[in-house]
Design a protein around this nucleic acid. Structure first.
Lengths: 333, 333
DNA sequence: CTGAAAGCGCTTACAG
DNA sequence: CTGAAAGCGCTTACAG
């Protein structure tokens, strides 16, 4: 019932070949013929079936996106950047989150074999790097967003985590805070190691090297950040600042400081990482190292699309700059 | 290069028809033949091309999802519910956000004509109801999530907005707050009218009818909520509570109360609506009327999938219950 | 139980 | 500049 290329051809008195040619604006069509065909297309409201085009051309003009979760606080920004870019290029975006065990991972890889999409954008779910590498080796174009420090063999977009950590340190040092407590993320993440290295080195260079008791591995949750800082406070405060490797952890830290009857930033200054939407709305607003999440999404999508339309991809990763956003959780100048 | 059904047929010494039959588990295949074919499929790692299957069957086993924005604080939960449900059913999810003007709306509708998906889930972007209604009339199955009170002619999933408003009122009344300030959302939204009706009636029934000065139309932003409450406070406080129609507005209200040197909840109690992830993390944590966003997403997806697999859809909308989550921004019992 | 053939709606050499 | 025909990888009557 929907109108097909055959209907258009019949109505315009030409062959399907010709219709296809004006559809794809191949040059070798008589101007008046083309115009007539275009009129019919408009009149009939014809739109080529994407499935048929894909089958005939061997490509789907669709990109896949795999994410570990859609509810993480910064995921919306990444997604928005990706969708905007993919849509503007006239591609479709197929969304996957294989977060229900091995079963769903398998289902996902079978979608790949089904050639449902031409390329893949991914925020890496845990333990999927091997699978992704295998897909890439089999010829699927893949671009990673935030490599988690795994440095895969395919292109990725990340942020200057080391610089970000260093900037957080310099900001706290400038405020005269010499005894920070660092709440890292899981140590297996490269971004965590980078953030910490930047922070630690900056403190060392300033003549205030971090002692072993000043660094605690956390898990990126608000609850754990709160628990750790709460315990440290109860055991007797020996720090004048907290640097958390993500904003949620920083929010937990602030809650613990307040719960202990202390003030942010006067007694304990707090710096987070990410600049999630909530960061500007906490009390006090959270000073944080901003990652340009939306731009990271746009950039990754742009790389993948370029690859799909024939361009070669940059051999080296794309590293976008972080920036410190100073707010009320650290002392003003 | 990828393995096709013809490869499998050849290797198994049968026709493509037979392979297709075991693939789709039609009964009329000899058991031993079927087993042999299955072995070959496994050995070759064959997966049917989704595009080809779709073309032959006239359906894509993909559902589309249209949203106004991916960065709204509750969108992640809705999306997660949708994706989980759609994935579990073995369908693909194609994501659209036509938020770049009429141009992108047109691009979206053309995707529909291209039969890229079999059904559509939508959180309605502004001014798209007519377009959606037209698509539905042309035969596209559509399910709306949160009807915004438009009561469209196709199925939708929403929450008990009126009850939610009433529950907020009863909660504040129980705390002895008789002079609330109401910060509504845009009046054109049906959910806003419902929330307000429930709240207003409950106050009236309790003998404390709302005066005209106690209701202000806001726009669901934190900034406007803060501005309105700030002005009211500066003009002389004549309210002991704020009911905001969304959590972001409530967060703004709390900020304004604190900025005025007053306390939440002692001087001004605050109740929000939605229960976004941030609500539990504010200082004090925000009392709010919870909408089961993830379940709304799951439910809508389930309805659409049922429809696509042949079941009839319920004529009446599905209305999920809201629930009041009491936290620190209102006085305890 | 099994297969040859037509068809889904396009694109693309190949001829003219 | 234009078209007939083959092909993309499946499914599905239709025969046997």
């Amino acid at each position: 019932m929907p109108v097909t290329i055959a209907d258009v051809a019949r109505a315009a008195g030409v062959s399907k070949t010709t219709v296809s040619r004006v559809l794809n604006t191949r040059a070798e069509v008589d101007r008046s013929t083309a115009e007539r065909v275009r009129d019919v297309i408009d009149r009939l409201g014809y739109v080529p079936s994407s499935g048929a085009v894909g089958l005939a051309r061997g490509q789907s003009r669709t990109v896949g996106m795999l994410v570990p979760s859609l509810t993480w606080p910064w995921m919306g920004e990444v997604m928005q950047g990706v969708v905007d870019t993919v849509e503007a290029a006239g591609f479709g975006l197929l969304l996957f989150t294989c977060n229900r065990g091995a079963d769903s991972v398998e289902r996902f890889t079978s979608q790949v074999s089904a050639r449902a999409f031409d390329g893949l954008l991914v925020v890496e779910p845990e333990n999927t790097l091997d699978m992704l590498t295998a897909l890439h080796r089999k010829g699927l174009p893949v671009v990673l967003i935030d490599d988690r420090g795994h440095h895969p063999e395919f292109p990725y977009v990340t942020a200057t985590n080391r610089d970000g950590g260093a900037e957080a340190a310099r900001h706290l040092l400038a405020a005269g805070r010499h005894r920070p407590l660092v709440l890292t993320g899981p140590a297996r993440f490269g971004c965590v190691r980078d953030r910490h290295a930047g922070f630690r080195d900056a403190y060392a260079e300033a003549g205030h090297p971090l002692g072993p008791g000043q660094v605690v591995e956390s898990d990126f949750t608000e609850a754990h950040g709160r628990a750790v800082v709460g315990e440290r406070l109860a055991a007797g405060r020996e720090f004048d600042a907290v640097f958390a490797h993500n904003d949620l952890g920083a929010v937990g830290a602030m809650a613990a400081v307040h719960a202990a009857g202390l003030r942010v930033p006067q007694d304990v200054a707090v710096v987070g990482f990410d600049d999630i939407p909530m960061a500007a709305l906490t009390r006090p607003p959270l000073t944080t190292v901003r990652q340009p999440m939306r731009r990271m999404g746009e950039t990754a999508a742009g790389l993948l699309l370029a690859r799909l339309t024939g361009e070669a991809l940059p051999a080296s990763p794309v590293v976008l700059p972080t920036s410190l956003v100073a707010r009320g959780s650290t002392p003003g100048p």
